[in-house]
């Protein structure tokens, strides 16, 4: 007649399997969104920084006037110089309509109607080392007044923006972890209050603090794990939908990829239930051991 008693203290009944997993599940859902946000910011930052830094814009004033050597128009001279420079890729002159659209906020829809001659604008990609200062000097000689601008400043701004967004996402993740710990602590304290007499009795019978804390921690770990897995399961379709919404910014999805979620997110997602379980274990241990200090 061997009897085995797993739950000596009655912790299973005291730490409800309803409230704690639901709250931890909600925290895990938010944590998954925050983690996805942090990863998306990191990815976009890397991509946008590269694109913005290499962008090259050349403005040629009075494009139809003759160049310095009177061989061709200023625009044609600049175009020829750009085409002959191996560090410049894909130079393309913007149409008058596109230029008009750019300056519309300041000059209205049709600058020509105001009698203004707009500069020609050429977009290109800078593939050379360092900054295009030598190119700017050469174009200045061919066509005085020509401006060469790179996207370095914009790249810095994009980097600052994405870094702050990433910081916000990580802060949300930290707050969610703290709230999850608070939820576990409150549930554990409620369980301690419910089992106060039982705990005082087993303490008096010689139970170690580690024994009592371990029983609460095991229960809190299990409930946090269950809740977190549930929260993650709910978060995955939402994340897939958000990734689909963001696809114009992130580029086309890889064919055959699992619901098109970024590989980094899929790799980190299983860590969330593990983290929730650890928070449950650690918080319950600290809460119970702290509470037991009041007993002699």
């Amino acid at each position: 007649m061997a009897r085995r008693r797993g739950d000596l203290l009655g912790v299973r009944a005291a730490l409800s399997r309803r409230l704690l997993p639901v709250l931890v599940g909600a925290m895990s859902f938010l944590a998954a969104l925050a983690l996805a946000g942090a990863l998306a910011c990191a990815g976009l930052a890397a991509s946008w920084r590269g694109e913005a830094a290499s962008a090259l814009m050349i403005q040629v004033p009075q494009p139809d006037d003759p160049d310095a050597a009177h061989d061709a128009t200023r625009l044609a001279a600049v175009q020829r110089a750009l085409a002959g420079d191996p560090a410049v890729r894909g130079p393309a002159v913007m149409s008058a309509a596109e230029v008009n659209r750019l300056v519309a906020p300041w000059l209205g829809g049709d600058a020509a109607a105001l009698g203004l001659t707009l500069p020609a604008v050429i977009n290109a990609e800078w593939a050379g080392p360092g900054t295009p200062d030598a190119l700017a000097a050469r174009l200045q000689t061919l066509s005085p007044g020509t401006l060469v601008k790179t996207g370095a400043l914009w790249a810095q701004r994009v980097a600052a923006l994405t870094a702050s967004l990433q910081g916000c996402a990580l802060a949300v993740l930290a707050i969610v972890a703290l709230v999850a710990a608070a939820v576990v602590a409150v549930a554990t304290r409620a369980g301690l209050a419910q089992l106060r007499e039982t705990i005082e009795t087993v303490h008096g019978l010689g139970a170690l603090d580690a024994d009592i804390a371990g029983r609460f921690a095991a229960r809190a770990t299990w409930l946090a794990l269950v809740g977190s897995v549930g929260g993650m399961a709910l978060a995955l379709p939402v994340l897939a939908w958000l990734v689909w919404l963001a696809s114009p910014f992130t580029g086309p999805a890889r064919p055959g990829a699992f619901v098109h979620l970024p590989p980094a997110l899929l790799a980190l997602a299983p860590l969330l239930p593990g983290g929730a379980a650890f928070i449950g274990w650690g918080t319950a241990q600290l809460t119970v051991r702290g509470w037991l200090r009041r007993l002699p």
């Binding site: 009897r3 008693r5 739950d7 000596l8 203290l9 009655g10 009944a13 007499e197 039982t198 005082e200 009795t201 087993v202 008096g204």
Partner: peptide
Amino acid sequence: FRLLPQLDAYD
């Protein structure tokens, strides 16, 4: 007495 209510006499 301080018996634990969730346990039977044996336990």
